[in-house]
Each structure stands twice: as structure tokens, then as C-alpha cells.
């Protein structure tokens, strides 16, 4: 089974990198969408269903924390698992984001295997 994934990051370079790493890692990707912040992501999610969301935290506009709050408050979108990708590996930040509804957390820098493992664990892909 191949999956539809949304990447939310204000850096076009990082979005491109994440997309490439998903493919390099062997993750089964059928379609990949991109958004520059939480607002753009929510707009896109009104018309496109995805299986998982990979989101940055520090973004202008609707940042990652607010995006997670808005997802959790939406009766339909709350079921989409969101995984945070961030440079911030501090305990406080990780705990807060997991409490807001993040299903996974990947700290930059990461290797392709880490991204694939986190996605597959979140999606319940059999080993």
C-alpha cells in the first residue's frame, strides 16, 4: 500500500529534502503535498485527504503548535496522524507537542531510516 503525505514547512529546501528522503528510504509514497505553514496546510486538507502529516514547528503565520491545536479541534482532521520534524530536541518541547496531539517526533538531523521507521510506526505498517 502506498501513502499520501503532507509536508508542512516554511523552507522549500526542507520540504524538498523530506520528500526526497522519503523516497530514498523506500517508504511507499503515492502522493506528496506541500504547505508553507499551518494555514496553508489546513486549506489544502479541506480538499485533499492524506494518510499522514509531517510538520515543522517554527514557521511564520500559523506555526506548528497552533497547527496541531487546530487539527485536534477539527472533528474530521484530528484522525490524521501528525509527526513533528524539528531541530528542537528539548524534553519540554517534545512533551508539549505530544500533549497537543502529535503522534511522533523526529529530531533534525535524522537519517532516512529514522523517517521511514517513524512514518511506518505511526501508520501501523506491518514490519
Amino acid at each position: 500500500m502506498a501513502y499520501r503525505v503532507l509536508i508542512v514547512d516554511d523552507s522549500p529546501a526542507m520540504r524538498s529534502f523530506v520528500r526526497r528522503v522519503m523516497l530514498l528510504s523506500g517508504f511507499e509514497l503515492s502522493e506528496c503535498f506541500e504547505a508553507g505553514d499551518g494555514s496553508e496546510a489546513l486549506h489544502l486538507l479541506r480538499r485533499e485527504w492524506v494518510d499522514a502529516i509531517l510538520t515543522d514547528i517554527n514557521m511564520p503565520g500559523v506555526d506548528g503548535e497552533e497547527f496541531l491545536r487546530l487539527l485536534a479541534a477539527d472533528d474530521v482532521l484530528r484522525s490524521i496522524p501528525a509527526i513533528v520534524i524539528s531541530t528542537d530536541a528539548t524534553h519540554n518541547r517534545i512533551s508539549r507537542l505530544m500533549a497537543l496531539g502529535a503522534r511522533g517526533y523526529i529530531t533534525k538531523p535524522f537519517v532516512p531510516e529514522t523517517l521511514r521507521a517513524e512514518l511506518e510506526a505511526t501508520l501501523g505498517v506491518p514490519l
Binding site: 523552507s11 517554527n58 524539528s86 531541530t87 528542537d88 530536541a89 528539548t90 529530531t107 533534525k108 538531523p109
Partner: peptide
Amino acid sequence: NMICGSVLS
């Protein structure tokens, strides 16, 4: 950005 975040963490 990545180096800074990684150092602080």
C-alpha cells in the same frame, strides 16, 4: 537552523 537547534538541544 539545524546546527543551532542541535547545539541548543
